[in-house]
Amino acid sequence: MSEEQIKNLEEQFEARIARDEKIEPKDWMPEKYRKTHIRQMSQHAHSEIVGMLPEGNWITRAPSLRRKVALLAKVQDEAGHGLYLYSACETLGISRDELYEQLHTGKAKYSSIFNYPTVTWADMGAIGWLVDGAAIINQVPLCNTSFGPYARAMIRVCKEESFHQRQGYEIMIKLASGTPEQKEMAQDALNRWWWPSLMMLGPTDAESIHTEQSMKWKLKRKSNDDLRQQFIDQTVPQADLIGLTVPDANLKWNEETGHYDFGEIDWDEFWQVVKGHGPCNKERMNARVGAWERGEWVRDAAMAHAEKKQNRKDKQAV
């Protein structure tokens, strides 16, 4: 294809996106679009899968049968999201095994929030309320993103995430209205998860390297800072409502802007965790790689059996 032809295709492609048309896997697309989508969608899928670990940590210790069932269902939803997103990613010509390889070698990233430990039951509430809450804010705009399979996956994912968010908040309500010990547990969880949740919405706009291109492709519709502000504005009243205190001495409602002003985020901590030195980075990776390696003989057996079965069928047919 000549350079001019490619340029022509690119122009048509950008025009389709500008018209809000969906790009489907078999459509022509610029290589950079494909790569950017593989990166973002797989990062999202990996986050779902790694995200199962901090919550999975409490399945055997959930305080009641009702909570245990709800937590199992939630973590199972996350596995489902992972599966869904890996499949959507595969439509761009990369296999799930290759994506796993990228995760296991550290080439691909996942959301840093999952590198924090879940040390009490209240963390199940805080994660649902804050982490899923922040995830929804990130993901709702993606329901209209330009790549069809991603947009459709997001519609389903967001429905379930919003259920998880309410479930998490409900855990917090119960704790906050419980005994002093329970309330303390809830406040402690909010203290520990608040700042990492703010960081989850990404570096400040000045430092975000992907924003401009992503905006054009509707992979991103609002900047990190706008999303963060939206999250804070939405969450602070929820904390007030149940009598918990957001751990930010500088948090204040600003009549003029119609938003909350808030304190400085510790970006050194953010980059430390992103670069692999958070409290649980190693544990999370060991758990994932360990599961994959321990499962190798199982996957090999399944493949061998499928092959043998097919051979037997072919022989019968002859």
């Binding site: 899968i49 199962m52 670990l53 999975g56 399945i59 055997t60 245990k68 199992l72 973590v75 199972q76 596995a79 489902g80 992972g82 599966l83 890996y86 799930r96 758990a287 360990g290 599961a291 321990r294 499962g295 190798e296 199982v298 996957r299």
Partner: peptide, 20 residues
């Protein structure tokens, strides 16, 4: 339930969690 997140594949992980 102990196995959730540690299965040999995503599909078996989901199935075991579902049985639980």
């Amino acid at each position: 339930g102990e196995l959730c997140g540690h299965g040999p594949s995503l599909e078996t992980d989901i199935a075991c969690t579902n049985i639980s």
